[in-house]
Design a protein around this nucleic acid. Sequence first.
DNA 1: GCTGCGATTTGATCCAGATCAAACTTTTCC
DNA 2: GGAAAAGTTTGATCTGGATCAAATCGCAGC
Lengths: 239, 239
Amino acid sequence: MDIARYEIPDAGTPVACRSCQARHGVVCGALSSSQLKELGRHSLRRKVEAGSEIVAQGSESSFYSNIMRGVVKLCKVMPDGRQQIVGLQFAPDFVGRPFVRESTLSAEAATDAELCVFPRSLLDRMIAETPELQRSLHDQALRELDAAREWMLTLGRRTAEEKVASLLYLIAAHAEPQTATSTAFDLPLSRAEIADFLGLTIETVSRQMTRLRKSGVIHIENFRHILVPDMDALERVSA
Amino acid sequence: MDIARYEIPDAGTPVACRSCQARHGVVCGALSSSQLKELGRHSLRRKVEAGSEIVAQGSESSFYSNIMRGVVKLCKVMPDGRQQIVGLQFAPDFVGRPFVRESTLSAEAATDAELCVFPRSLLDRMIAETPELQRSLHDQALRELDAAREWMLTLGRRTAEEKVASLLYLIAAHAEPQTATSTAFDLPLSRAEIADFLGLTIETVSRQMTRLRKSGVIHIENFRHILVPDMDALERVSA
DNA sequence: GCTGCGATTTGATCCAGATCAAACTTTTCC
DNA sequence: GGAAAAGTTTGATCTGGATCAAATCGCAGC
């Protein structure tokens, strides 16, 4: 198999993926060392900047990726332009839809990110040969399904304030805690993206952020940097 | 393994599951005939009536099921009683959350239904031994994930009328078509359940149903029986 | 057939969040 | 360093769907 055949525009350095060889992650944690080596030979480390599309909605993708660093948003767009973010993925998640070529959603880097990109055909073969890998991907799919259903509850039944608090809580839970109770992080999403995640408008998101700030549940610095002095308090307002 | 150990209250007739032996379905289609026989020996055919709970939110379930007949709704409830239906499952879907014992949602029969119930420990062993079964369940999980994400778009970005039309379209798509364009079916959900699926109130659901009826997109008989003369028209108003 | 009850529809009013509009803040790029 | 552009906040007003209230329908039980 020749890596050039799989080269994608602006694909980055064709080096074996060190992080994969460290066996972390949904895919690489489930592979034997010879499989890791083979995957490494056909992988491209690719830096993508915030906003660039990884997979387009409606397109057929010949690639899967592992997220090495950064945040990826999964997005659905209606013909008239209405838009909904249907998932957020963090390192070391796997990006791609096994078994179906055509994507019903787009994947886009929400922050600057680093991916390990490899050909679909190769991983599909490894999935078929490696029950442990199938299990690992099955497990990720089930975790994503749990998360999606939790978000359905948020979208359908929570108020605007609860929605914003829930999203902040979700993101904070992926950041390093500062102390036992407090956490600080940079929001990976703009107000517009938050609105698209929560089924709100940017104005409503902004107003609810202000509300949370005035009530002391969060501190905001420079729009993007958030400090949560007490995670329990944030959880409480997210209902 | 003794089936009595797994007996559940009011569990129904302990007969081998004929339909499973016919190899249809997510689970049974992936098993060898000896596995089918073993699963059959430990299965209970169980009739459940509309409204009865199959798995309770927050409980630990020792059972999985296959849906033989009927519709099952997956539901999340907030401490204050707000409620969201997060999935509908039809025969021959598999019901249960592999790998995690505690359920974060409840499963409830939406219509009178018939299930094939069997012990978690047995299927977990078969999953570990049978890549084909893992694959089949992985595939169902991914289909459910696609569906969940489609509903996130509906919940977040569609209007009340589009929501109601989308749900009718979804259910109609599971019914036998009458002619090339028209379909008739009995709604498996009450107005209250529809509201809980769509993040609306029963009054809004009722008004939108009336609206769709007055515009000729659907005909309603006896509250529950729906005729869709033109599926394309219904799809159009669901945006 | 009458009665009572749950499910549904219909009507009147209210309000959370959308929309429209403008100011302000930060970043980008000459 | 300054101007334009992009992102965010704030304010005024509107509206789709919620809430409150009542009538109607269909069915189970007597």
